[in-house]
Simulated scan of single mutants.
Amino acid sequence: MPGKSTKPASSHVDAYERILGAIDSGELPPGARLRESQLAERLGISRTPVREALRRLEAQGLVAHEPHRGVVVAELDYDQLGELYAVREVLEATAARLAARHASPEEVEVLREMAAAHAELVEDAAGLAEANKRFHRQINRSSHNRYLNSMLENMRVNLALLSGTTFTLPERRRAAAEEHRAIVEAIAKGDELEAERLARQHISNGYKARISLASRD
């Protein structure tokens, strides 16, 4: 476990968000044991909010109980990976289509700036991975559909279980940066069908990269 955090959690929600963040960042990778006492010490809180946070994460499928090991970060099997990306493709593509319809000029400009920055991060896998999350979140917000965003947020929770990043593959970093640029230009033109098509292809390419990574394990 990393060193104890100096920032105290003030509620069960804080404990949940911080444990989820540690899973999402890879600090707590799939298969990692989750001991209440260690997590409570790390967060600087009692075990009660930690226990509640773990129950919530278990209900969402992010935490599991394993014989002889106890509570661990859940791991996606091969079929679950495919199921997750199938849903992601539909939701992300819909968000891009609605962004092409509803995004304000200011939102388009922000997306353009993000995409341009990604081209400067093609040698930085970790940096591009974080920028990629912010980029997709901005597209989702630019769709201006609260119900879609609720579904996307629920999906984001499950994406935290993806181990590592496909941006460890140099060819994926370069391709993703160009795909982001193309999606933004379609959104800027208000071309809903093209934005949707490009977003679908983008997620599909990401899934192929995931399969490639999994085949190397």
Rank of each mutant, 00 (worst) to 15 (best):
G3H: 07
S5M: 05
T6K: 04
T6R: 06
P8W: 07
A9L: 13
S10F: 02
S11R: 08
V13K: 12
V13Y: 03
D14L: 11
Y16T: 06
E17A: 08
R18D: 06
G21E: 08
A22S: 15
A22G: 07
D24F: 10
G26P: 07
G26K: 03
P30C: 09
A32D: 10
L39M: 04
L39G: 11
L39R: 05
R42H: 13
L43S: 06
L43I: 06
L43Y: 01
G44K: 02
I45T: 14
S46F: 00
R47Y: 08
R47T: 11
T48F: 14
P49M: 05
L54H: 01
L54G: 00
R55Q: 12
R56D: 15
A59W: 07
A59P: 02
A59M: 09
L62Y: 05
L62M: 09
A64Y: 02
H65P: 00
G70Y: 06
G70N: 04
V73A: 05
E75H: 09
D77S: 09
Q80H: 12
Y85H: 08
A86W: 04
A86L: 08
R88A: 12
V90Y: 11
E92F: 06
A95N: 08
A96M: 00
L98Y: 00
R101T: 08
S104K: 04
S104V: 11
E106V: 11
V108F: 03
V108D: 01
E109Y: 02
E109D: 15
V110R: 09
L111R: 00
R112A: 02
A116E: 05
A116Y: 09
A117P: 01
A117C: 00
A119Q: 13
A119V: 08
E120R: 06
A125T: 00
A125H: 10
A125W: 11
A126W: 15
E130K: 12
N132E: 05
K133E: 15
R134G: 09
R134W: 07
R134H: 14
F135D: 02
F135Y: 09
H136L: 11
R137N: 07
R137T: 07
Q138S: 11
Q138F: 13
I139F: 02
R141Q: 15
S143P: 06
Y147K: 07
S150F: 10
S150Q: 09
L152W: 13
E153T: 10
N154E: 15
N154F: 08
M155S: 15
M155D: 13
M155L: 15
V157P: 02
V157S: 13
L159C: 14
L159V: 15
L159P: 05
A160I: 12
S163L: 13
G164N: 01
G164S: 04
G164I: 10
F167M: 03
E171C: 05
E171Q: 10
R172W: 09
R174I: 14
A175H: 03
A176D: 02
A177H: 07
E179P: 05
H180T: 10
R181Q: 08
A182P: 07
I183W: 04
A186Y: 09
I187M: 03
I187L: 01
A188M: 10
K189A: 15
G190Q: 03
G190A: 02
D191I: 02
E196N: 03
R200V: 00
I203R: 11
N205C: 10
N205K: 12
Y207A: 07
K208M: 09
K208Q: 13
A209E: 01
A209H: 04
I211Q: 13
I211E: 14
S212G: 14
L213K: 04
L213A: 09
